[in-house]
Nucleic acid binder design. Structure first.
Lengths: 198, 198
DNA sequence: GGATACATGTTGACGATGGCAACATAGACC
DNA sequence: GGTCTATGTTGCCATCGTCAACATGTATCC
């Protein structure tokens, strides 16, 4: 089961919450998928956690820090998803990447939307980098270790762009009426070959 | 009333501005690149245009409408850029796409960041669609008219993802120290072939 | 066990923002 | 000239992020 929870949680009536950090993350994650990043406010998160409007500040320096934490969660989950698709080969990994984006569209947009500068959040950069390293390793057998980094970059760019454009609805005209998203993704990924030689 | 304008721009002393619509767009475009979409406020745009905080509402229904207009401008400009690179073939077009993103990063993010739903802004969808159609046409000679739509989709995804990931700084580790962005883009694009057969 | 320090929540305030309503003014049209 | 309408302005409100001051549990030390 996914770590990016979408649920609710019973709350104790004590003055101290117990695990407000996690609760705020959970509530924020819900709001994020419902309203998008622009609609996510600290105050609404606090409200949903049943806590005063300033309580979140004990756990997140500011709104940006909360967003960074949400994004880092996203990278970790994406890494897990890709990992578990690994056994089926690189192609399956690409499909899993797109599937993740479509399942958690707002999370995905937060992770890559440029709202957050990686430079400002080292933990975030590290999470993103780890995910990418896994991609590179996956491409070594496919393209030879020499060309692997470049091929991996191309592959990442391809699936990433595909996910993003799908999310934005830019392929609405292209997909023939009955074609499922999955089939479309497969056909697009199938239209590409990665060169061996540098 | 004094005609001594203290603003940065010569502002006519008339009560009516003359072309506030264009001026707001201009000011907003500047703010956008300076601060990103989150930092763009109607009030700041009004301030820069030397006009009251509510004047923009005569020209844009709300903030979202202003953003949509900015994005539409962006799609038009991107279309122009791609068109003028067309003579040098599809590869050059791809490079031009990435160059556009790097030159106007915030504009690009606004166009594709998911802040705007295409469904809510028909004019925007049309502008985006036009740009995409041009891409498809460019790919017909390369992949045969049968496979063209799919190949074009793949090509768009590739350059789009490349642009996005470059913007976010995800390729920081990958690009060898001395390698220029242009060279990196060329090598990545060069690592990909588009299949002829469906 | 009780006093004390510290982490965690709360209340209240401020300035900025998006947006509504009511009013003001300048051109256009008669 | 007189009226209509598009365009700006002023004033206002709720919401938001964030700071400062205060309250309340929990842990620590004697």
């Amino acid at each position: 089961m996914s770590t990016l929870s979408r649920g609710k949680r019973p709350r104790t009536a004590t003055y101290h919450h117990g695990d407000l950090h996690a609760e705020i993350l959970r509530a924020s994650g819900n709001i994020l998928e419902e309203q998008g990043v622009a609609g996510l406010s600290l105050r609404e998160a606090a409200r949903r956690a049943g806590v005063s409007h300033n309580a979140p500040y004990r756990h997140f320096a500011d709104r940006d820090a909360l967003l960074a934490a949400l994004a880092a969660e996203g990278f970790a989950e994406l890494g897990r998803v890709l990992e578990s698709a690994a056994v089926q080969g690189p192609r399956a990994r690409g499909e899993a990447y797109v599937r993740f984006a479509l399942e958690y569209p707002q999370r995905f947009r937060l992770m890559f939307g440029g709202t957050l500068r990686l430079d400002a959040h080292p933990a975030l950069r590290e999470a993103a980098s780890r995910t990418y390293q896994a991609l590179v390793r996956a491409f070594e057998p496919l393209a030879g270790s020499q060309a692997a980094p470049t091929a991996a970059a191309a592959a990442w760019a391809l699936v990433h762009g595909l996910a993003q454009l799908l999310l934005d609805g830019h392929f609405a005209d292209v997909r023939h009426a009955g074609q499922s998203v999955d089939a479309f993704v497969r056909s697009v990924l199938g239209a590409v070959r990665f060169a061996r030689a540098p």
